[in-house]
């Protein structure tokens, strides 16, 4: 008993903030094959359900004077539509469903991840790297298809003095290829860090003396995380629009 209590006290200071990110098979088994149904599958499926609930079920009445749920769906639609139109231009509208998909997935994955005991799919680099690479490939392919070799003008800063241009070209090229890296790490890093910090504060709650502080800190962090959940989805989406603008109008 005494050893157990001692162990518990020690356990209160031994944190496992990263345990929440472990990918586990849902229905037993130890190996994770590519088709195994895991907690990743569950929370992505819930994200799909949430998207369908908001965008399909919420708007099913097609009312001219919208209900609350329909207003939210329309708000999301107009929010992303305006973003695409304002940032990437009118000719980027055909990418709108694609960008909307990214936004809706990230925003719902982030918010579902804020439910206690849940699993945050967007905290994994495997997910965000794929998302960022999809954007990178889309932008690069669109750039070459739309502008041909002129797309390379993106790297050749014609407004700079001629001797500087090769150097700038190298910098531009590097920054172009760093984009998917920063794009993916920004999202996963923010989400992961916030969740890990909450877990660390939660670990401190095991010590009675600091537990009030810990609970207050968790509450504050949670509020911050709610902001981060939306802002990171917004940032990911708006950067996608910015990159897309580069592909459609590569002139500096």
């Amino acid at each position: 008993m005494a050893t157990e209590a001692h162990g518990a006290e020690e356990g209160g200071l031994v944190f496992h903030p990263m345990d929440q990110f472990i990918v586990k098979p849902l229905f037993g088994g130890d190996t994770i094959e590519w088709y195994t149904i895991t907690n990743v599958t569950l929370w992505m499926a819930l994200a799909v359900v949430a998207v369908i609930a908001m965008m399909v079920l919420g708007t099913s009445r097609r009312a001219t004077v919208p209900s609350r749920s329909q207003s939210i769906g329309e708000l999301a639609y107009v929010f992303v539509y305006k973003m695409v139109e304002d940032v990437a231009g009118k000719d980027a509208i055909k990418f709108f469903p694609y960008i909307m998909t990214l936004f809706m997935f990230i925003v719902f994955a982030n918010f579902l991840g804020l439910i206690p005991m849940s699993f945050t799919t967007t905290s994994h680099f495997a997910v965000t790297v794929v998302l960022a690479l999809l954007v990178f490939l889309t932008v690069t392919i669109t750039g070459f298809v739309k502008n041909g070799m002129h797309f390379l003008g993106l790297f050749w800063v014609s407004s700079a003095p001629l001797p500087l241009r090769p150097i700038l070209a190298i910098i531009e090229l590097i920054s172009y290829f760093v984009r998917p890296v920063s794009h993916s790490i920004r999202l996963a890093g923010n989400v992961m860090a916030g969740h890990a910090v909450i877990k660390v504060f939660a670990g401190f709650a095991a010590i009675a003396a600091v537990s009030p502080v810990s609970v207050i800190a968790i509450t504050a962090m949670y509020g911050l995380e709610v902001l981060v959940a939306f802002i990171q989805a917004y940032v990911f989406t708006i950067l996608t629009c910015v990159y897309l603008k580069d592909a459609l109008h590569p002139s500096h």
Partner: peptide, 25 residues
């Protein structure tokens, strides 16, 4: 477990894309 995550992510994205582009949007 990257393969697993990527597989389910792609499934999710395709489903969301079709739901959005065919019905919702």
């Amino acid at each position: 477990n990257w393969g697993n995550q990527i597989f389910w992510l792609l499934v999710t994205l395709v489903v969301i894309y079709f739901v959005l582009s065919r019905i919702a949007l």
